[in-house]
Design a protein around this nucleic acid. Structure first.
Lengths: 214, 214
DNA sequence: GTCTATAGCAGGATAGAC
DNA sequence: GTCTATCCTGCTATAGAC
């Protein structure tokens, strides 16, 4: 594989990722991708075989590595703290995903691509769950386990992690709704506010309400 | 509009909804829809003008009314309780969305369609936010306001509601991940478990962890 | 109101020159 | 490895018979 070859290949991957994330697999044509990548129509078939394989490669070569960077950031962020606690984990998690090492565009693409796979799983879903989600969940479970109440089983722990996760995911992918409802843009200040919210809610829930149901 | 006309129209709407939800707008052809609805290719143009208008009509005639049914269920469920409390609201909310008046298929379609609009808003997004989401959020805010701590501003309240909502939405649309991680199917027992989880997490967060960060 | 037939165009993929 | 040219299929939309 020559140098120039890689450059074309990389350009295709970049443009394909952006277009697939924004518009979805079926709405994007190979022509659109190759035009954006300033190369020939045939280049996709030459480098990736076909459109479907290009899509999968976007996950392998772009999505998975970026997810790993976020997880690495989370790990280091946790390691740098003196005291490990539930709130430290919640904060590191929220920061890694909402601020973290990715650019705003990367973050948006990342959650668009993942959400599309959640609504309608394809081959890429396997990659995404088995290579990224499942190991990360396992890691989170091991980290949080010591801080959980005695009686809490593995399922309870898993559901707690999923609950935290749901906020992190939602505040990323449903930006357009969150902005509408709160009237705020996703600037640095608002992201800080969201991290704070996730940590606070993860620790105390709504807080202040009665603790007994009707 | 004759009786038979309505029947064809309704059949098209039903099939279109299912197909758009499962496969997304661009992946579905008018041919697929009309074949599934056992009518002619031209029927979509006759009844709805074009494909895009059919898509919008799916939201107007199917999605919005169903969302209203869920909200109505929530309202009645709350009204039937003796004591209004934070946990009562959380429970009514989780039950309305995870169990509620919709069939399992309806629920799945509903969240697929909404999530697609969140990732990539079209005209339908306006309908969805202004006619359904925003009024419901306002209602929830009014209901919860009396139970919130004194100092909590409108933004804090909005974020709390969004946090609860994120769990409800996530446990609906990310079934495939939730099932993978927990190893459980979405049967009646698991849905009860999820309602319990949402209520518990909404009230106490993770619980049991230290309350002080590092 | 429902159908068939077709216009008119865009899609993925490949063959073969360079 | 990159290009042009092209095949073939499938799409939306409409015209016009019934």
């Amino acid at each position: 594989m020559s140098k120039k070859d890689q450059i074309t290949r990389e350009r295709i991957l970049n443009e394909a990722e952006a277009l697939f994330a924004t518009n979805g697999y079926d709405a994007v044509s190979v022509r659109e991708i190759t035009t954006a990548a300033r190369c020939n129509l045939a280049a996709v078939n030459y480098h990736f075989g076909n459109k479907q394989k290009l899509y999968l490669e976007v996950f392998r070569a772009r999505w998975v590595p970026r997810a790993r960077r976020v997880q690495e950031y989370f790990r280091e962020s946790l390691a740098s703290r003196d005291i490990l606690s539930t709130s430290a984990v919640a904060q590191a998690l929220a920061e890694a995903f909402l601020k973290g090492p990715l650019s705003d565009d990367e973050r948006q693409r990342q959650s668009q691509l993942m959400t599309r796979e959640l609504i309608q799983p394809t081959e890429a879903f396997e990659l995404l769950t088995e290579e990224v989600l499942r190991p990360f969940f396992k890691e989170l479970a091991d980290t949080l386990r010591p801080f959980m109440p005695e009686g809490l089983g593995n399922e309870g722990l898993a559901l707690n992690i999923l609950s935290m996760f749901s906020m992190v995911i939602y505040f990323n992918f449903a930006r357009v709704v969150v902005s509408r409802i709160t009237g705020r843009d996703y600037d640095a200040a608002f992201k800080d506010r969201l991290v704070e919210q996730i940590v606070e809610f993860s620790l105390n829930g709504l807080g202040g309400g009665e603790r007994e149901g009707a």
